[in-house]
Design a binder for these strands. Structure first.
Lengths: 150, 150
DNA sequence: TTTAACTATTCAACAATTTAACTATAAGGA
DNA sequence: TCCTTATAGTTAAATTGTTGAATAGTTAAA
């Protein structure tokens, strides 16, 4: 493939990826009110999915330092969305879980997102969506290999 | 499509999109050294492409307030990567362009990104890439319609 | 000419991030 | 057991990006 072609593909990809992320987040912001930032929502979404996790796990998952997680968790804790529970066996470990208030907020937002997606997803064939996500996941693996290569 | 299916697709999409962006930016960070942040690179990349633009145009393109652009441009200006030129016809307007130093930096980074992408893109059929980006662009348009709907 | 609109900047406040230092706890070897 | 090392999490300072409100300077319109 020529350099120009690669250049063009990179440009198209970066543009559309940037734009889609921005627009999706903007749509979600309307649903959020001013309760949460995007990063806070991503964290809550993750904790909801796994049920309970540690700061270290979050830091690895989101590829940031643990101190960045502490800061976000502190803000969510102040708002009453997250609980900290110390492990009795290994008292260094702190388990993070959603409070009832946190779960309620998440489900409320998630339902709205679901409705949003319904209106958009109907414009795509299921096979197109499946192929799209598959290629995306393949790209993800390629990036992981590239990273671990050396 | 059932709610569970939508839920699953949203999860897969959010996860893979988040992960790909993070990993691509991590790979690029190695090329960047500590010269630029990602946002600064995106801005420089845009100005390089259009040649010259205003703060207002950047704010619209990146969907942030103009004061956020001023802050980023100030930092790039301090580093000597960007020039400000006042329009003589309409003296409210300031045109932003890359300095020679800014252009050199961009081409250097861009070349490295090109090489990175070459190593990854070879694992995909051209038709698969084309279809992937097309679906992505279609998603972008669907989001724009959704936003403008009401 | 006065008023309204527009372009860009400044400032204060906040969120996210990194780096480095620190506390507390656990695990392992002499 | 005691000393060392490793691990989990937090704190603090500095940087970056962001919004919202106020402002200065300029242009357009009533």
């Amino acid at each position: 493939m020529s350099n120009d072609n690669i250049q063009q593909l990179v440009n198209r990809y970066v543009d559309v990826s940037f734009s889609v992320t921005k627009k999706a987040e903007a749509l979600i912001t309307e649903q959020l009110g001013s309760n949460l930032t995007h990063d806070q929502l991503y964290i809550i979404r993750y904790i909801n999915r796994v049920g309970s996790c540690t700061s270290t796990a979050l830091a690895e998952e989101f590829e940031v330092k643990k101190s960045a997680i502490t800061a976000i968790i502190n803000r969510l804790w102040e708002k009453g969305f997250i609980q900290r529970t110390r492990d009795e066996k290994d008292r260094r470990v702190v388990y993070l879980t959603l409070t009832e208030k946190g779960e309620e907020l998440f489900w409320k937002i998630d339902k709205r997102i679901q409705q949003l997606v319904e209106g958009i997803i109907s414009q795509f064939e299921p096979s197109e969506i499946e192929q799209f996500i598959k290629t995306f996941e393949k790209l993800n693996h390629a990036l992981i290999e590239q990273r671990d290569k050396k």
